[in-house]
């Protein structure tokens, strides 16, 4: 738990991030994502409770094993790109020569070779963002924590960042990133946690998340499919011609589309179309977080 005066920013939040893979830390603005990440990094201390990161209490011991890209991003304007990345490498315990060498490699990797020795104030915003990312990656961390990493990035840099995240994950690192943009989470996350008002409202993989909402189908039939097994809601979408009508169905929790299709076949219920549509993470988010936000505090 973390309180700021009378305000509880994080409340009874417990979760575990499995090693390896990409873990999404999702929530609306002000849900407590940044505060939780700050506590994991020992930038803030919890009011109560315990945190363990890489099998030890948060702190700077072994900080080289953790890379961090904060939501608020800035750089020392008078340092060059290479000096910046080297400086952060050294702060995390690297010796000068390896830090400088790693910095050069990352600067090259991000296509900034020509600007390696330019001061940050002369770089474009996009270039500066790459330098920030390089500073987080310079120690090749086992755990990479990214707080709203896609905020403020143009589509090209978003794609570049996604690529870097996937590459780090493939090399065995654990990635934890917070976001409120579900499309990124949908593309990247193996597992995720949803928080609202500082509390956990869901934790699991994407399939489990989608299962939070009923499966929806669109069918084209000659009559309304009421009474079929597992159908919870039926809504007519209008005539489809030649006596056929489009319907949207919502299945009851636990019911499967396959079972319904099998029932239609065995009962001789005529169909011209049978399409299942899984809930998006965005819909799950709105459903789960919206309910939690609507609850009285």
């Amino acid at each position: 738990m973390k309180r700021f005066g009378g305000f509880t920013a994080v409340d009874d939040l417990s979760f575990e991030v499995p090693e390896g893979g990409i873990f999404g830390f999702l929530g609306a603005n002000g849900a407590g994502k940044t505060t939780s990440l700050r506590m994991a990094l020992d930038i803030l201390r919890p009011t109560s409770g315990a945190i363990s990161v890489l099998d030890r209490a948060p702190g700077l011991k072994g900080s080289g094993e953790i890379g961090f890209l904060p939501e608020e991003r800035g750089l020392y304007r008078q340092l060059t790109a290479v000096e910046t990345v080297t400086y952060f490498g050294r702060l995390k315990g690297m010796a000068l020569a390896p830090a400088r060498s790693a910095a050069r490699a990352l600067i090259d990797r991000f296509g900034l070779t020509a600007f390696a020795d330019e001061t940050v104030e002369k770089l474009s915003k996009g270039m500066a963002q790459k330098v920030q990312l390089a500073a987080a990656l310079v120690t090749e961390p086992r755990l990479l924590i990214l707080d709203e990493p896609f905020a403020g990035l143009d589509p090209v840099n978003q794609a570049m960042l996604e690529e870097v995240v996937l590459e780090r994950a493939r090399s065995g690192a654990t990635i934890v990133f917070s976001t409120h943009v579900m499309q990124h989470a949908e593309r990247l996350c193996d597992r995720l946690i949803l928080i609202a008002r500082g509390r956990k409202v869901f934790q699991g993989d994407q399939a489990q998340a989608r299962a939070q909402l009923p499966t929806r189908l669109t069918i084209t039939a000659q009559k309304a499919p009421r009474g079929l097994p597992g159908v919870a809601e039926v809504r007519s979408l209008g005539p489809a011609g030649e006596g056929w009508t489009d319907y949207e169905l919502a299945l009851a929790p636990g019911a499967s589309a396959a079972d319904l299709l099998q029932a239609c076949t065995s009962d001789g219920f005529p169909l011209r179309r049978f399409e299942t549509r899984q809930a998006s993470l965005h819909e799950v988010f709105l459903h789960v977080v919206g309910e939690a936000e609507a609850e009285p505090q």
Partner: peptide, 17 residues
């Protein structure tokens, strides 16, 4: 005030006390 003004306080505090 430099880190605060330049919004790099968190990045630095993740490395030093």
């Amino acid at each position: 005030l430099e880190e605060r003004s330049n919004k790099l306080l968190e990045a630095v505090l993740a490395c030093v006390t």
